[in-house]
Each structure stands twice: as structure tokens, then as C-alpha cells.
């Protein structure tokens, strides 16, 4: 049963990391323009070419 003392905090840590990542993405404006983000990948940037 001692393994619980290690595994339980470990899984909680993983969960907290997920919450922190979500918090960061929210603060960073990742959900501000879902339609634009989906469309932006289709826009050709003239400077964005593969290296010769």
C-alpha cells in the first residue's frame, strides 16, 4: 500500500499540470478567435517559403 503514497501525489501533480496548461492557454488568448485560427493556416504568407 505504500506505493499509494507515491502514486497518488504523482497523479495529482499531472492533473495540476493540465490545469496550469489550460490556465496559460486561456490567459494567452488561445480561444479568442477559433474561426480565425482555423482559417489562418490557409493564408499564404509571402515570406513563408521553404529554404532554397
Amino acid at each position: 500500500m505504500n506505493i499509494l503514497m507515491f502514486l497518488a501525489p504523482f497523479s495529482l501533480g499531472l492533473g495540476l499540470m493540465a490545469v496550469a496548461a489550460f490556465w496559460w492557454s486561456l490567459r494567452n488568448g488561445q480561444y479568442d478567435d477559433p474561426a480565425g485560427d482555423a482559417a489562418r493556416i490557409l493564408v499564404d504568407d509571402p515570406e513563408d517559403r521553404p529554404a532554397p
Partner: peptide, 28 residues
């Protein structure tokens, strides 16, 4: 409405003298 509009508008506005950044939010 579409990616084409967004690209066109952003490129054109970006080219206006004095503009540092133009960004169109397609959702709002």
C-alpha cells in the same frame, strides 16, 4: 468570412504607412 478575406484585409492594412500590426478576428 473566409481565410481569403482575412489574408487580403490584413495584408492591405499592414501596407498602410504607420501601421505596425493589423489582426482580424474572424469570430468577432
Amino acid at each position: 468570412r473566409c481565410a481569403g478575406c482575412m489574408g487580403k484585409i490584413e495584408r492591405e492594412v499592414q501596407a498602410v504607412p504607420g501601421v505596425r500590426l493589423a489582426r482580424l478576428n474572424l469570430t468577432s
